[in-house]
Nucleic acid binder design. Structure first.
Lengths: 139, 139
DNA sequence: AGTAGTTTGGTACTTTAGTATGAGTACGCT
DNA sequence: AGCGTACTCATACTAAAGTACCAAACTACT
């Protein structure tokens, strides 16, 4: 909501400065009012576009990146298990995960087994599907 | 692109009518120019907001629902292979896919092998990841 | 009718995944 | 100091996945 306040403040400031500009131009005479109006129109059009762009950027991210950390705790997944889960969904084998995390393949197998129990999955592919259903993995 | 043309036409029309309005107000005298400018600002701000809203409505749907059937053809995936791919991403085992499609497990293995070659994947988990990258599977 | 691709299925094999069990280390908490 | 939890790793095993090769039947195309 801070952003909205700032935007409104900027809008009011812009309006006031444009009033000043219009007065100055009015004193110095003649029919350049069209130009001023055109400039104002363009400026506020751009402001409108900018505001909406900002708003939509804010909308999209929470939907796509929203990972339910609560659910992770609820399922009792440890941080290491969660790391392994992420690598599984990246399509890595146990051996590849082991070398990436600098541990033995046995360790990864242990993590995977515990992972499958906690997610109530029979296979790693099913674990991926369930994890995405729970929104604990990005889609 | 038709939409863009229409919007620009509407914009120009609005500008011209506002010019007329400003001239009329100029003749009838005094310092109500501020009001006109304010109206113009608000109107164009709203126009900017409207344009961007329109644009973003068109953007969201094709991204989430779009499955690239062209890419499937391009990769040379047969319809049966694609069915198997879908079941893999649902977390099913070869045996489960076999009974779901009423064929033998050997057949599924053959399909999976061909699938992996065509997707350039080493494992079924990697195949899922690649398929989603290519947008041939829903996320 | 012949050619090409798809679907189906088999055998035999290698590799990877997953289970079960035990056990040592480390860290924080009370 | 003792307790629980997480992390590590090993062995031994079973199950599933994946490879290689072959082959029959069934489209569809021209």
């Amino acid at each position: 909501m801070k952003r909205t306040v700032l935007i409104f403040a900027a809008l009011i400031a812009a309006l006031l400065s444009l009033f000043q500009l219009s007065k100055y131009s009015y004193i110095s005479g003649d029919s350049s009012i069209e130009m001023i109006i055109a400039v104002i129109a363009v400026v506020f059009l751009l402001i409108g576009l900018y505001i909406n762009k900002r708003r939509n950027q804010g909308k999209k991210d929470p939907e796509s990146l929203g990972i339910d950390h609560e659910k992770i705790k609820q399922l009792g997944l440890s941080s290491r298990e969660y790391e392994v889960l992420q690598e599984i969904s990246n399509g890595l084998s146990n051996r590849e995960i082991a070398s990436k995390l600098f541990v033995s393949e046995s360790t990864i197998k242990t993590h995977v087994s515990n992972l499958l129990i906690k997610l109530d999955a029979k296979r790693r592919t099913q674990a991926i599907q369930i994890a995405k259903k729970y929104r604990i993995l990005p889609e």
